[in-house]
Write a protein that binds this DNA or RNA. Sequence first.
DNA 1: TCTCCTCGAGATCT
DNA 2: CTCGAGGAGA
Length: 337
Amino acid sequence: MDFEIRFNSDDNHKKIRIKGENLIALPDAYTVIDIETTGLDQRYDQIIEIGAVKVVNNSITDTFESLVQPDPSLVLGDNDEWQTEYVDEFITELTGITNEMLESAPPPEEILPKFIAFIENDTLLGHNIHFDINFLYDLLIETVDHRLSNNFVDLLRLSRKVYPHFENHKLATLASLLGVKEVKGHRALSDCRITHECFQELVHSVHIRNIDLDSLWKSRSKSRPGYIRALDLRELKPEGFTVNEDHPIYDKYCTFTGKLERMDRRTAAQIVVNIGGKCLNSVTKETNFLILGNFDYCSSIRDGKSSKLKRAEELMLKGQDLKVLSEDIFYDLITSY
DNA sequence: TCTCCTCGAGATCT
DNA sequence: CTCGAGGAGA
């Protein structure tokens, strides 16, 4: 580990979290974690409850649950004399955790050592687990000088790949669609249980459908399963019967460079093919038209020339029948005739 | 054809 | 944060 502090121009100094590895795996032993907080913002909000569920051989063997008293000095504002306002009505409504409950809750110094002992070096599982880990990481460093370096698995990330057709991937939606019954509201331990059961369903799905997990991510290499071919414009077939033999693009080869403003590249290429033209992925000896999009998003090019444009200019010097078209001219062309 | 990069769009956590 | 699109360069 090289350095923990990095200096930043806009932020005086900002802590870098050296977290464990984000695994793409389906372990059969893990510890689920979940926290409740006073809000979503890592900078201002605090942990009010920690829950954890230890799983071995896909079964729950132990649980951990405790409220945590937030630092009163960092709290919103003392609304009045008799009680500190740790949480607002929204959080109480959402979680059922009240200011009275937090008033008598143990402070982090008391809870965190127990939590560390509970999770040991287990692989952690959570839904959108970055949220929980970031909060815990900071509090652990701050109060007991412990660096949370456990590897972890994110149910949200897995579910987006395994169930791409789901309307969304909120925990409640997963539970409902996977047939996991939700118990009472948003409490740390009950959410851990739900996360655990959803994960078990996901593992089941992966086995039944015989999915190779790794192939869902990279392994874009053509030889492997799960390979997604890059868009090959040469393979586009005409749709409809708009072919026009008198059109300047008819039977000509077109290449695109840069990002088109008014439509995506595939749509533009399809129109070319419908007219009776042909598309290429790169500038070649056959290219007749190079359509120029913009490069505003590409800092390395911006006002310069793309490699495709340079190649095109070389070929034009050699006498090739090739014209460079701006996007506007291109649209005029395809919408005429 | 493959790897690395940057960018923008879109979610999810309380 | 994660992912896909697209460009560059080997």
